[in-house]
Simulated scan of single mutants.
Amino acid sequence: MLNVLSVLIGLFALLFMIPAFLPFLGIANWLLVPVALFGALIGMLSTRNSGRNFCLLVAAFGALRLFLGGGIF
């Protein structure tokens, strides 16, 4: 059950992270990366690893976008 919740949190973060890849909307990643990391934390409590890995991947993409945009763009 926790794995499903983790995947749902990761999908939520990914869904809202897609528009954050546009210029001047990248600041939304400051909110979405912690959401994805929270999903990874919930995924760590599960016996399966797929939800945790998916949330970590989403958080990594958001962090990469923040790094490339200088934290704002």
Rank of each mutant, 00 (worst) to 15 (best):
V58M: 05
L14Q: 01
S46D: 14
G43S: 15
A59W: 04
A28M: 11
L22A: 13
L56C: 07
G69E: 08
V4N: 15
M1H: 15
A40P: 05
N49D: 15
I9D: 01
A20L: 06
N49K: 15
N3E: 08
L8Y: 09
V35Q: 05
M44V: 05
L68M: 11
G71A: 08
A13F: 02
F38R: 04
L22Y: 10
V4L: 13
N29H: 14
V4Y: 12
L37T: 10
V33A: 00
F67T: 09
T47E: 13
F54N: 01
A60V: 09
P23N: 05
A63V: 10
L15E: 11
G69Q: 05
I18Y: 00
L8E: 15
A36E: 05
A28T: 09
L32I: 14
S46I: 08
S6F: 07
N53D: 11
V33R: 00
G70A: 10
C55R: 01
G51L: 02
I9F: 00
A20K: 01
P34M: 08
N53C: 12
P23G: 03
L2G: 14
S46C: 06
N53Y: 07
P19D: 03
R65V: 06
S6M: 08
L14H: 03
V7K: 07
T47Y: 13
I42A: 04
M44F: 11
C55Y: 01
L56Y: 03
V7E: 10
R65A: 12
L45M: 14
L64N: 11
L66P: 04
V7H: 03
S50C: 10
M17C: 06
V4M: 13
A40N: 01
